[in-house]
Each structure stands twice: as structure tokens, then as C-alpha cells.
Nucleic acid binder design. Structure first.
Lengths: 117, 117
DNA sequence: GATTTTGATTACCTTTAGGTAACCAGTTAC
DNA sequence: GTAACTGGTTACCTAAAGGTAATCAAAATC
């Protein structure tokens, strides 16, 4: 028997990994949506997402700022307020999330159509 | 100052989570692509993906079978062989992955265009 | 003057994902 | 008979993600 052949997997998957890193994790999409919906302040965003802790929110907001999904502005006022606003770039994610949503809906149909057989 | 308003985030995000669970993780997409490319046997798939261990492959193949992305067939022969083949359902993921890829490519452009300023 | 609100940071713990290596039975080639 | 192939399983360990709770300063409210 001759040696089995196998094809090597290409690593042009880096951009796919990048995208999954940006929107992956338990909270990132929820936080993004909260900001898209108009929540601007730290506590406002925190309270809009049940069970989200300040620590995680703080870390995710930094990540999202680095990834240019949001802009952080410190307003000089008496109780110093910070504003988070979505960038134009962030909005290009809406299409991606919609795609994930559509596939997920269809997948549920497939799975539930087969299990109760 | 009146009580700040904040909007609650909807949880129609379950299908998005589902999709991320199905394609998330370090290896799932690589394994899928390997099978799409024609690799059918356990060791063949394993060798096509550098650094992938048998334990992780074994677990991921089970997950993928449950999610109806692949079909597992045991061929009764002398050295018992097992074949993994992609389902039609799995192919609907190609569009999703392409979408992730496109966004990732564009995201890299954005990020690298800003950092060396 | 004590508490509450603002936007956080820090230390510590738990949970999950993933990695390492040994081992199994059956078969075939050396 | 011994080595290597087939398709896996098991026990153990590490690393990363996430959760809990305390703390911070400055200002406003009670």
C-alpha cells in the first residue's frame, strides 16, 4: 500500500481568526449592540447588560477601542464623565453579525428537525 | 438630575451565539476545511493540521457530527476504517466564513493604516 | 458628615479550553 | 516476533477567560 496522501491546510485563515477575536468571547457583541443602541456611559452600558461586571466591561471597552470599534471621550465636567461612541468601522460588523444570526437560525431548524425523530 | 435611562439588550442573540459555538475555538474551522478539501480519515485529517492532537481532533469531530456538519461512517474491512464526509448543511457555512474573512481583511487594513501614523 | 454616584483598578479564585503523553486492540509489513 | 499502522480513550497539567469583591478619588445628595 502506497503512502497516503493528505493536503496541508492553508493558513490564509488569519483574517478569519482576527474577526473571531474581535467579536468572540461572551460579551463583545452584547456591548457593541448596547452602544449602537445609544448607551454612552460606563454605568449605562453596564446596567444594560445583566451579569456583566465592571472588570470585564472595562477590559472589553479597551479592546474595542484598540480595534477602533468605539471612541472614548473624557468630558471635562464636575462629575467627570466618559463617553463611548461607535465608529463607522464598527458598523461594518452589522453585516457579519447578521450573517452569523441567519446561519444560527437555520442551524437551529436543522438540529431541532432531526432530534425529535 | 433625573434618573438616567438605559435600554435593555435584547437576547435575540442566541442564534449568533450558536453559530459562534459551532465555528469558534482554535481548530473547528481548520478541521472543516481539511474535510472539505477531501481528507476523509482520522490520521489523514490529523496530519493535515500541524500541532493538532488526537484528543482535540476526536472531541471536535464528535461535536461536528452532533452539529450535522460531518457524517461518520465506519467501513467494515480488515483494518477497520472510519470515514468523515462533509454534509450539505456544512457547506452553508462557507458563506459565513467568507464574510468573516472579508471583514478580517478589511479590519487589518484599517488597523495597520492607523498605527504607523 | 455619611452615603451615593461617577469611571474605573487590583487581587484572588473558578471554570473551561486546550496540550502532553501513555495506552488499547486489531492487523499488516519487516 | 517486533515494529508500525488503524481509530481512538484516558489521566493529568497548563493557560486563558471570566467572575467576585474590595478599593480608589472627587463630587453630589441626604
Amino acid at each position: 500500500m502506497k503512502k497516503k496522501e493528505h493536503k496541508e491546510c492553508m493558513s490564509a485563515l488569519i483574517p478569519v481568526r482576527d474577526t473571531l477575536d474581535v467579536i468572540g468571547g461572551k460579551w463583545k457583541i452584547l456591548i457593541l449592540i448596547s452602544i449602537w443602541e445609544g448607551n454612552k456611559h460606563f454605568r449605562e452600558i453596564e446596567r444594560s447588560i445583566p451579569k456583566l461586571s465592571t472588570k470585564v466591561l472595562s477590559k472589553e471597552l479597551k479592546d474595542m477601542e484598540e480595534n477602533q470599534l468605539i471612541t472614548r471621550t473624557v468630558l471635562n465636567g464636575f462629575p467627570v464623565r466618559t463617553e463611548y461612541t461607535p465608529t463607522e468601522h464598527s458598523k461594518s460588523l452589522k453585516k457579519v453579525i447578521l450573517e452569523l444570526y441567519n446561519w444560527g437560525v437555520n442551524h437551529r431548524k436543522k438540529i431541532f428537525a432531526t432530534i425529535p425523530s
